[in-house]
Amino acid sequence: MVNIQNKPINYPLSEYIERLESGGALLPDTPENLLEVVGILKSYGVVLDAYSKNLIYIAEHQFFVFFPFFKYFNGDFSFKKLLRHWWHDRINFEYAEYCMKSMMWHGGGGLDKYLDSTEFKERAQAVIKAKFKNNPIITGVNQLFPDFLFEQLRVSAYTTGLGQFWRVMADIFLTLSDRYDQGEIKSIPDVVDHIKAGLVADASKPITYSVKIRDKVYDIIPKSVGLTFLADTAIPYVEAVFFRGTPFHGTVSYNAKAYQIPPDQSRFQYGALYADPLPIGGAGIPPTLLMQDMRHYLPDYLHEVYRRSRRGEDDLRVQICMSFQKSMFCVTTATILGLMPNPLDTQDPDEQKVNRVFIQKWLDRLKTSRLEDVNDQTNFCLVALPRSV
């Protein structure tokens, strides 16, 4: 997904404020949108399950491995898997690392703050000493470059943090699909409520990180630090991946004189909510890897919709990206409603005013997003089919 400086939204924001206040979503509630969103989140859930397992494996078993050639094998290496890896008949775990690096670069949340703390440095120093006590070369390098190994552990901490976040989200999306199959999910607001309930239920889930060196376990992020799923991984993820993102090489000029990249990271608008789906499939576009992964796990009912579109499967990754973008506006809606300062159904005028200001701030950031596009059905070439159960 590549941002191409989308035009500002030319519809009244009051329409979306009223829709959210009445329990609706940023995405219109239509049978076609419901089928697309649930179907694509089913595929996404399967992929996130694989991503999360690999990220957690890398953090726990590949930390301080400076040339991790086999990190994508999850400890189960074979020559058959290696051949499939070289042939790219595999999950593209590189995209998971791209998202991790985006989170780490943009920062934010308690995890980012903790990794700059004295406590983290003390715990990291203990791990470094234990790991390399018999390695004079690495010990010497660490003395010459005292931040090198600390930075390696920071990367590992973000790796496990994203892995634990995606572990929760994968379960939310897969149970959403199960409930849809059972006839319990019948509308876009039902999708939003399901996601919001999952976010709230796991909001206080602790984010921890421990590694084992020889026979001793070292806590790098102990539970006592107080890092939690929602505040310290979910919100920073939304900020880094949904909103800001990173500009992709070959799509914009990195020349400062061209002014195509804002000098301030907080003004970045390259995230999933702003991205143009059409360049998907181009070389060097990281989300292409995600779309390629999801195409292997599409539910039959959604795959059939894509086959019946104007171009059939010739632009399958683009169609997947369009559906995925719709689903991310549903996740964004769930985030907005979940973080609402006061109950949505409050009758207190002051609380209603606070809620409206809160919603307005979110919508102000979405003015140049693709919100208008996902609300304009003429921009989508999918042909909805009745689903056979």
Rank of each mutant, 00 (worst) to 15 (best):
339 L>Y: 02
293 D>I: 09
301 Y>V: 03
329 F>A: 02
298 L>N: 04
295 R>K: 12
299 P>H: 01
297 Y>N: 05
290 L>Y: 01
299 P>G: 06
328 M>E: 10
331 V>A: 13
316 L>I: 15
327 S>Y: 05
293 D>T: 07
301 Y>N: 09
323 S>D: 12
314 D>E: 15
313 E>V: 11
301 Y>Q: 07
306 Y>H: 06
340 M>Y: 05
339 L>F: 06
297 Y>C: 05
310 R>C: 02
338 G>M: 05
316 L>N: 04
332 T>Q: 13
305 V>D: 03
296 H>N: 13
326 K>Q: 03
327 S>R: 05
325 Q>H: 08
299 P>I: 08
325 Q>T: 12
291 M>V: 05
308 R>H: 15
298 L>Q: 09
300 D>F: 12
306 Y>P: 01
317 R>T: 12
324 F>E: 00
333 T>Y: 02
301 Y>S: 12
323 S>Y: 03
332 T>N: 07
318 V>K: 10
335 T>H: 11
327 S>G: 11
331 V>T: 11
326 K>I: 07
313 E>K: 07
313 E>Q: 10
336 I>D: 00
292 Q>A: 15
305 V>M: 14
319 Q>P: 02
313 E>P: 00
336 I>C: 04
305 V>I: 13
320 I>L: 13
332 T>Y: 09
291 M>L: 11
333 T>K: 02
340 M>P: 01
330 C>I: 02
312 G>K: 02
301 Y>W: 01
297 Y>W: 10
290 L>M: 13
297 Y>K: 03
325 Q>I: 13
335 T>M: 14
293 D>V: 03
322 M>D: 09
312 G>R: 01
299 P>L: 08
305 V>R: 04
304 E>Q: 15
296 H>M: 12
318 V>P: 00
332 T>H: 07
305 V>G: 05
322 M>T: 09
321 C>V: 02
306 Y>V: 12
321 C>S: 15
297 Y>I: 07
330 C>A: 13
340 M>G: 01
305 V>N: 03
326 K>E: 03
296 H>G: 01
313 E>C: 08
302 L>V: 11
